[in-house]
């Protein structure tokens, strides 16, 4: 079986290993996906006769807690990569598992928030504000869930891969980290736009 080339060494044309180049191209497409929805949000808001302040309808303390959870998970993610760089597999496992746990905590908080909205009969069909709120936060939540699933797979196969090819494993974690930080970055903009303004 032919091995995938340049998973560790930089590609002579791009100067980076293929995985990193690939994940950046993927993130570029993600910018356009969320960009289209942000654009829709601006158009809806500017075109509306009245638009509610998010803080009047949404739970700001819960969203602040979620912001802190995601920021912390970004730090644990980058620390897990740094741990592999200094050959400390034990610390990597701790930080990476913490990242998964914090991502799950984010989704649990989000589910409480959604539950409260549904209890008060606020659905995507209620009005334009809730339509764009559920669309943006729902899509973001799916990205968090996707990240958790991939990270869980990477954690479950980490030991064998670390023993077989530690450099390749470190690069995989860097790519997973780039995705996770992007998800954090999207939330950094969603939080003020939806909840505070």
């Amino acid at each position: 079986m032919m091995e995938i080339p340049y998973t560790v060494k930089p590609h002579p044309v791009t100067g980076v290993y293929n995985g990193k180049f690939g994940i950046w191209l993927f993130l570029a497409s993600e910018v356009m996906l969320f960009g289209a929805l942000f654009s829709a949000y601006v158009l809806l808001r500017v075109g509306a006769d009245t638009w509610p302040r998010g803080s009047a309808l949404l739970n700001v303390p819960l969203a602040t807690l979620n912001t802190m959870l995601l920021i912390t998970s970004s730090v644990t993610m980058v620390m897990s990569w740094a741990s592999l760089k200094v050959n400390n597999f034990g610390k990597y496992r701790f930080y990476f598992a913490s990242t998964i746990f914090l991502g799950l905590a984010f989704l649990v908080v989000k589910s409480f928030e959604y539950g409260a909205k549904f209890e008060h009969n606020h659905f995507p069909s209620t009005d334009t504000f809730y339509a764009i709120y559920f669309t943006l936060t729902g899509l973001h939540g799916l990205h968090v869930l996707g990240g958790i699933l991939v990270n869980t797979y990477l954690l479950s196969t980490a030991k064998s891969m670390w023993n077989r090819d530690p450099e390749h494993m470190t690069n995989r974690i860097e790519c997973a980290g780039l995705y996770w930080h992007f998800v954090d970055l999207v939330w950094i903009f969603l939080f003020p736009v939806l909840y505070l303004l």
């Binding site: 930089p10 791009t14 100067g15 980076v16 990193k20 180049f21 950046w24 970004s74 730090v75 993610m77 980058v78 980290g177 780039l178 930080h181 992007f182 954090d184 970055l185 950094i188």
Partner: peptide
């Protein structure tokens, strides 16, 4: 986040 966590402060030209 982009500069330090995603290492964009010292990335290659292609990125």
């Amino acid at each position: 986040v982009a500069s330090y966590f995603m290492h964009l402060i010292s990335e290659r030209a292609v990125i």
